[in-house]
Every structure is written in structure tokens, then in C-alpha cells.
Amino acid sequence: VTTYKLVINGKTLKGETTTKAVDAETAEKAFKQYANDNGVDGVWTYDDATKTFTVTEMV
């Protein structure tokens, strides 16, 4: 189990959260659900070296 981080660069919501998951795919599903629940829709990137997902909403 690995800890993954999500950085949110939203128009109205900004911040970070973490989740523990067995792999990046599982973490991504959890983060996308979290973003969807919070009304964040944007471009996703993932950095495997730092285990960090970033979602950026276009203005």
C-alpha cells in the first residue's frame, strides 16, 4: 500500500489531499471521484516519481 497525493488547482477549490491505495490506478479512481464530488473538472497529470496526481481546471 502506497500513499498518493492529489494537488487540486481548481477555479474555486485549491488544495491537497492524500489517499492510500494498492496502485496508482486505484488512487486515480478515488481522486477522480473526490474531484467529481467537489465539482472539479480539469486536466489530469501524474508524476510517478513523487506519486502525485494534479488536476488543473482551465479558466
Rank of each mutant, 00 (worst) to 15 (best):
A27R: 00
V40I: 15
V59L: 14
G15S: 15
T2C: 11
A30F: 15
T54S: 06
T3E: 15
T45Q: 09
K32H: 11
T17W: 13
T26P: 02
V43H: 10
D23H: 05
T18F: 13
T19P: 01
A35G: 03
G10W: 05
E57L: 07
G15C: 13
N9A: 09
A35L: 10
T56R: 04
M58F: 14
T3Y: 08
V59Y: 12
A49D: 11
T52Y: 02
E16F: 14
D47Q: 05
G39S: 06
A35V: 09
T56P: 01
K51W: 05
T3R: 06
G42S: 02
F31T: 00
T45M: 10
A27D: 00
D48N: 08
T54Q: 05
L6C: 08
Y4T: 01
E28P: 00
T45R: 06
F53I: 02
A30P: 02
T2I: 13
A30H: 14
A21L: 03
T12P: 04
G15L: 13
A49M: 13
T45H: 11
V1M: 13
V1F: 12
V40K: 02
K5S: 07
V55R: 00
N36M: 13
T54I: 06
V1L: 08
F31L: 05
K14E: 05
A24F: 14
T52V: 06
K20D: 15
T52K: 03
T3I: 13
G42M: 03
T18R: 06
D47E: 07
T19G: 04
T2G: 07
K51T: 03
V43N: 08
E25Y: 12
L13I: 14
G42E: 01
Q33T: 10
V22K: 07
Q33M: 11
T3K: 12
A30G: 04
G39D: 07
K20Q: 14
K11E: 08
T26S: 12
G10P: 03
L13R: 08
T12K: 10
Y46Q: 01
I8M: 09
Y46M: 02
D23T: 05
V43Y: 09
Y4D: 01
N36K: 15
Y46V: 01
Q33Y: 05
T2D: 10
G10D: 03
V1E: 15
K29H: 08
A35N: 03
T3H: 06
K32P: 00
T17K: 11
M58R: 11
K5C: 06
T17H: 12
Q33D: 08
I8F: 07
T54K: 04
T17Y: 15
A27N: 00
N36L: 14
N36R: 13
K51A: 06
D41M: 11
G39R: 06
N9M: 13
L6E: 00
K5W: 10
K51E: 04
T17N: 06
A49Q: 11
T26D: 05
K29G: 05
G10L: 12
T17P: 03
V22L: 14
E25W: 09
K51F: 13
V59C: 14
A35T: 06
K11H: 12
Y34S: 02
V22E: 08
A35F: 03
